[in-house]
Amino acid sequence: MRVMVLVKATEDSEAGTLPTPELIEAMGKFNEALIEAGVLKDGDGLKPTSHGKRVLFSGADRTVVDGPFAGTKELIAGFWLWEVKDMDEAVAWVKRCPNPMPGPSEVEIRPLYEASDFM
């Protein structure tokens, strides 16, 4: 089962606050454990939405909107793509993760569609 693990943005991540050296080291160790277990397929941190753009679709029209974007709680600061046996395994891995932000944070786990879902 493939899952996308989404690290939700916070005011700190949207302000461009970089992780401490201690957090970088802890995340590095966590990512190494994911790699050794064959779970980690990809992952990275995202720059704040002030560096981003959105393209809005309405029929044939496209409108480009420059960041930053409101609603920090709905924004993404980083992601992992994991291969796990089931959602319980994904939850167990997230529980082992260092807190990705200086304060309270949230991580969302979403399964990806597989070809078998459409048959």
Rank of each mutant, 00 (worst) to 15 (best):
E89W: 04
P68R: 01
M27Y: 13
G71N: 14
D86C: 06
L46G: 09
E106R: 13
V65Y: 05
F57P: 04
L40F: 04
L6R: 00
R110W: 01
G45M: 07
D86E: 07
N99Y: 13
I24D: 09
L75S: 02
E83S: 09
T17Y: 08
I35R: 13
M87V: 07
F69L: 11
F118V: 01
M27P: 02
L40V: 02
R62A: 10
C97W: 03
S13Q: 08
D12W: 09
G71I: 03
T20S: 15
T17Q: 12
P48I: 08
E11I: 02
T63M: 08
K8P: 00
A9F: 06
G16V: 03
M119A: 10
P21D: 13
N31C: 02
L40K: 14
A70V: 13
V5P: 01
V5G: 04
L112C: 14
M87R: 11
T20H: 14
F30A: 00
V5K: 08
G103L: 10
V39H: 03
P68M: 01
R110G: 01
A115F: 08
E114I: 09
D61I: 08
M101N: 15
C97N: 10
V94A: 09
P100V: 05
K85W: 12
L34N: 09
A37K: 15
E25I: 03
C97L: 11
V39L: 03
D88H: 08
T10F: 01
A9Y: 05
V107F: 10
E106Y: 00
V3R: 01
V91S: 09
G103E: 15
K41Y: 04
T49S: 15
E36C: 12
W93A: 01
A70H: 09
F118Y: 15
N31G: 04
H51M: 14
S116N: 12
E14C: 04
K29Y: 09
G16H: 04
L40G: 07
E22D: 15
W80V: 06
I35H: 06
F69P: 02
P19H: 00
A37L: 02
F118P: 07
T10D: 13
L18I: 11
A15L: 00
K47N: 09
A60T: 14
A37W: 10
K29W: 06
V91M: 07
R62I: 01
V91D: 11
T49V: 06
M101P: 08
S116D: 14
G38I: 00
V65P: 08
P111V: 05
G67Q: 04
M27E: 08
D86R: 03
